[in-house]
Design a binder for these strands. Structure first.
Lengths: 336, 336
DNA sequence: TTGTACGCGTTATCAC
DNA sequence: GTGATAACGCGTACAA
């Protein structure tokens, strides 16, 4: 049986109002003796406040919702994890919904969260979202709570957007590879349907062009961000015997490339240089360790929390933030 | 402004009761014409049910809560992710709390979830919990909802418990190594404060003894499950020049061992065999690929869901389940 | 076929 | 200092 304020009020022979005041630590009003008595009873009976009822009465949930494509993805798991820890410090609870990268689930998730009464919605949209922004925008617009987009955004969205700078990240990585005297470089591209692919390849192309390195259509290989696609494409790339380096659009494909290279008995980076993007935790543990681009989760969270705090105060607050990345020089890219 | 049933009732010129009936798809009562009219208005006004109010009225939340130590840990992220997907199919929402492996947060999490009104609590307790079971047990006992423990359990807990069989997993792995004619085997142990460490080392010792392989105290090396501890201890182990194999209590430490071995120019598994435990996703991608033990998440989830379904029906249902593991033979363990 | 009225647990306003 | 009581939005038994 659940203990309510009513039970405590009866036991203490006071009104519910008084119990409420005491349990919420409101100053004044009640005598110290009564305060103690009520608190004692609450403790003994193991009273726990019914958040649902409070929410109904106050129309305030002290809860924010977040929708991410996939918790099995370390990036999002880490994001959610930190967000929850930080928001807890602020007295907020975080509701998490995973969309499995399906628009349908994004939209259902929004409904689900809103129906539960959140004070703010954060979302990393599904990859396909950018192709169908209308639904999102109309849905988010007449939401009664502020919304922000993190990492995976929709350009047209008018609320706050926070993301990493793919263009400059890949740009400076490419620059670094070129600085190591590589001229013939293959680019292993990711899935072009994914939100963040375009920025990366453009960063690569811009850097190559800036340094007068020719890039032909056939120097771009189409992977899908998976280990397998890197593994499968290595032979095709390497056996051209024209490249001295391969830049992969993410670490997983770079692993695939390296794995096949080592399997073929090649020496890295002497026979060929390979780089990745994301700085996955294992990248440091490989032999050779992987040169890649890091996206600092702390920087992201700092901005996210700043924007959340502001949005909670002013629901119409809006800001577009692009976060810088760091080039991580390790041993998989060599100088020639 | 939020749309409520009242708004719809006014617009349709009927009572709130009628609107409620229609929106909850209750059979009979209302005329088809009125049904359509009400649904249309709800759609136009973008009505979304106030779950908070419903919960207060029905005392049913269609929500379960889960507490895990850490979402950045793939195992738990995967667990939560699948649980959420499966429970969604059942019309349930999953509230997630991370404890950061601190008892304090476990207990606070329980309070937090209960105050929000969950129909069931699932928890993977903090590692230190087994040392202080009293608090948990008293807290969970007079909880008004059923509770189950997953993976990280407290032995004394009387509700349902579901976990993997560490003993038999490590036992058969050791057996396999011995079958490959290894006799002098070093064991790289994990943190003994962690819930699942004991079972693993016991499985190793039992198998060694069963095959008449001597194990001395100094053949057990104390790691802490981290890559670094494996990396740091490799030299100490290898330079004994007595071992032909090292069994690590998890994959991360095995990575550390392998990394240092390769750095020293050794050939695996010719110079020394190494095995892990957990079958982390990257274990397949290493050179050589890592022989390890897999804990099938699908099997775990099947059992978890079965128990949840039963517990939701009968709050006093209780079962103690131990799930089998699979030996994954790859290339890091060689025959001698 | 539809409406009335009450309860869910809490907060907040006002009265005493 | 303390108590009554009206919201909050919804579900439901009982009337009509």
């Amino acid at each position: 049986m659940k203990i309510t304020m009513k039970d405590i009020a009866e036991e203490a022979k006071v009104s519910i109002a008084t119990v409420s005041h005491v349990l919420n630590n409101k100053p004044g009003r009640v005598s110290d003796a009564m305060r103690e008595k009520i608190k004692k009873i609450a403790r003994e009976k193991k009273y726990v406040t019914n958040h649902t009822a409070r929410q109904l009465a106050t129309n305030k949930s002290n809860t924010i919702g977040i929708i991410v494509p996939d918790l099995e993805n370390y990036f999002f798991a880490s994001m959610v994890s930190r967000l929850q820890a930080k928001m807890r410090e602020r007295g907020y609870f975080v509701l998490v919904v995973t969309s499995n990268d399906e628009i349908r689930n994004d939209l259902e998730g929004i409904r689900l969260l809103v129906s539960r009464g959140i004070d703010l919605l954060a979302i990393s949209v599904s990859n396909a979202a950018q192709n169908h922004p209308e639904e999102y925008l109309s849905m988010l617009e007449d939401l009664s709570v502020p919304a922000i987009m993190i990492d995976r955004i929709i350009k047209e969205f008018k609320g706050s957007k926070i993301r990493f700078d793919d263009f400059s990240g890949m740009n400076k990585l490419t620059e670094y590879v070129i600085d190591n005297h590589h001229r013939k470089i293959a680019f292993l591209n990711g899935d072009m349907n994914m939100a963040r692919t375009a920025g990366r390849i453009q960063g690569f192309l811009a850097s190559m062009e800036a340094h007068g390195c020719a890039v032909d259509q056939k120097d771009i290989y189409d992977g899908d961000y998976s280990f397998e696609s890197g593994y499968a494409l290595f032979d095709a790339i390497y056996d051209q015997h024209t490249y001295t380096a391969i830049i992969a659009a993410n670490d997983m494909m770079a692993y695939g490339l390296m794995n096949r290279a080592i399997e073929r008995g090649l020496t890295l980076p002497d026979d060929i240089s390979i780089s990745g993007y994301d700085n996955v935790i294992f990248s440091e543990m490989l032999n050779p360790s992987l040169t890649t681009v890091n996206q600092d989760m702390n920087s992201l969270m700092d901005e996210v929390l700043r924007v959340i705090d502001l949005s909670l105060k002013d629901p119409h607050y809006s800001e577009n933030i692009i976060i810088d990345t760091q080039l991580i020089k390790r041993n998989s890219v060599g100088s020639i």
